[in-house]
Nucleic acid binder design. Structure first.
Lengths: 154, 154
DNA sequence: GCTACAATCTCTAGCGACTAGAGAAGCAAG
DNA sequence: CTTGCTTCTCTAGTCGCTAGAGATTGTAGC
């Protein structure tokens, strides 16, 4: 006879339902991505069903490589469905450009590393092409890595 | 008449010669990649010329995306030129595999993100394909991202 | 010698996105 | 009542640096 009142869920259930780990969910709350849910008498978090959708959104966006700050903006937009989605579009475009430049860089790295490997005759270190190339930048494929490259990113 | 005795260099000179920043060089010393050089009376580091080659090796390897721990091993090998280079080879191969899997993953992400963008008609958020797809995993290209994906890597 | 100013020193903290662990408390079943 | 699981808070660690404070040293010009 009751209308199907979905009971609030504890954090572990939420973790199961979303595929996120429990500490990750707490972390998202801490950084303000997920609103703090009400607590039980014993101080446990009890989540409404809406939390599942929100966390799935976050997880999917993270899987697609969006940064937390972008996700924060995307969630804001999802919360205001009557506004323009131009910003969402531009966030996604920026992200796509980022992905493509990473691919380009990794492709260049991959070619260079495989050249190194191909040149190695597997004898002593003295003749190792891998070590030689690393020791002498001049021996590498090209200059495409110099200058334009941020050394500190993967 | 003197044989060309290369004078030890201060850290700033070394930074210029290698393209690394001064704090980065100190950091490499701190983590044991670069041996601690002798100091001047006033406690400044004075580097022998060999430090330049070592730092260039490190920089080049970092540009190629090798992790510090791999570089540590590669440097060990470079220091023992009579040993076998099979390990260097396998480090490089492992790194190549890593690069290739990142490329594969980024390519999949890029396709999915560009599908999202292509589907967006730039109207309100309610009809925004970008937001929709993020909100509902089922709408995305495929299952290739599910399960096999570590959410926490870029 | 004195005065600027640059370079260097040590130390600590911050980045992003979590992850791991300690130690305490709550909760359900037997 | 005990056992064992879940949850709680808090702190610290990951990687490869980077930024900043505040002190000291070195150098160039006058």
């Amino acid at each position: 006879m009751n209308p199907p009142t979905p009971r609030p869920q504890p954090i572990g259930r939420l973790a199961e339902a979303t595929g996120l780990k429990v500490p990750t969910i707490r972390y998202y709350e801490q950084i303000g991505l997920l609103p703090s849910p009400p607590r039980s008498q014993g101080n446990r978090r009890l989540y409404p069903d809406s939390a599942i959708a929100r966390l799935r959104f976050i997880r999917h966006a993270r899987e697609l490589g969006f940064e937390i700050e972008s996700i924060r903006q995307l969630l804001d937009m999802a919360d205001h469905p009557d506004q323009s989605c131009a910003d969402a579009d531009s966030i996604a475009r920026r992200h796509l450009a980022d992905i493509q430049s990473k691919i380009a860089r990794l492709t260049a790295l991959g070619e260079e590393v495989s050249q190194m490997i191909a040149g190695c005759r597997q004898s002593s270190v003295r003749q190792c092409r891998v070590i030689q190339v690393l020791a002498d930048h001049g021996q590498c494929l090209g200059e495409h890595l110099a200058g334009s490259v941020k050394i500190n990113e993967k």
